[in-house]
């Protein structure tokens, strides 16, 4: 078994077999349950239609999954520094890239669990709409891309930060910063500069893809160019994390 797989197995056991993982999954499921019931009753009041409800569950699944990955990866290296467990780990033959790769794979399970938990809700909310397969596909592809992007970015910050608090602050701050375009009015985002920002920002691009494919029922071919931003972001963030992981230090900058 490779060092990466050993690290991933240990992290997964720690979180999902001996830790808080299953309880967190239950909380996520309860959140989906509350949302599904609320959406149903809201729809009865004609406030939302069914496709928008389906899109809400997809957004929640991706959002919760990405948040779990970011929280896990933010803690990955700087958390070990805080707990003084990084030094013994660096003395083992496990390379930095194997360490970060294994932790990233284990953190990715957080998104995978959120995705799997969302499937029954997607099925019942999308019953008869003909968009269930699209919703599952969009959730899987975008969730994986955004988890890689933000997980790798959080790993990069964690490697470079002196404390876990610094990593968490920067990571959550970065997420909040990238969410700003989502709060801008549609009229601002529909001009060429706004569209360029939306395409470059992986969160905005994901929001556009979900709305276009699930709610507006556009074809995948017409929206395929919107995947470019999230794919490029995932590649760049992975490359940064990979480069940094090769030179993990006890004290960054030392």
């Amino acid at each position: 078994m490779s060092a990466t797989a050993i690290v991933a197995r240990e992290e997964i056991s720690e979180t999902w077999l001996r830790g808080w993982g299953p309880w967190l999954a239950a909380v996520v499921a309860l959140t989906f349950s509350g949302t599904a019931i609320a959406l149903g009753y809201s729809s009865q009041l004609n406030l939302l239609d069914a496709r928008e409800g389906l899109a809400v569950v997809v957004r929640m699944s991706i959002g919760v999954g990405v948040l779990l990955v970011v929280l896990s990866m933010a803690d990955s290296i700087s958390g070990m520094r805080d707990r003084s467990t990084l030094e013994p780990m660096l003395l083992t033959p496990v390379s930095g890239t194997s360490l970060v790769g294994g932790k990233l794979a284990a953190a990715g399970l957080g998104w995978l669990v959120a995705f799997v938990v969302s499937l029954p809700y997607l099925y019942v909310l999308g019953d008869g709409l003909g968009r269930i397969a699209v919703a599952i596909g969009v959730s899987a592809v975008l969730g994986a891309l955004l988890s890689i992007t933000f997980g790798a970015a959080a790993a990069f910050l964690s490697i470079r930060s002196r404390t876990n608090l610094q990593t968490l602050g920067l990571g959550l701050g970065g997420l909040a910063f990238l969410s700003i375009p989502l709060l801008l009015p549609a009229s601002v985002m529909s001009n060429p500069v706004g569209e360029l920002i939306a395409r470059a920002d992986p969160l905005s691009a994901a929001q556009h893809i979900i709305g276009s494919l699930i709610i507006d029922q556009n074809s995948l071919a017409s929206e395929i160019s919107w995947f470019l931003g999230p794919v490029v972001a995932a590649i760049v963030a992975s490359w940064l994390a990979w480069r940094s992981a090769a030179f993990i230090q006890l004290e960054p900058g030392s």
Binding site: G40, Y41, S43, D49, V124, L125, G128
Partner: peptide, 8 residues
């Protein structure tokens, strides 16, 4: 079909 009977 807005609210499937299986939702709850």
């Amino acid at each position: 079909l807005l609210v499937s009977g299986a939702t709850v």
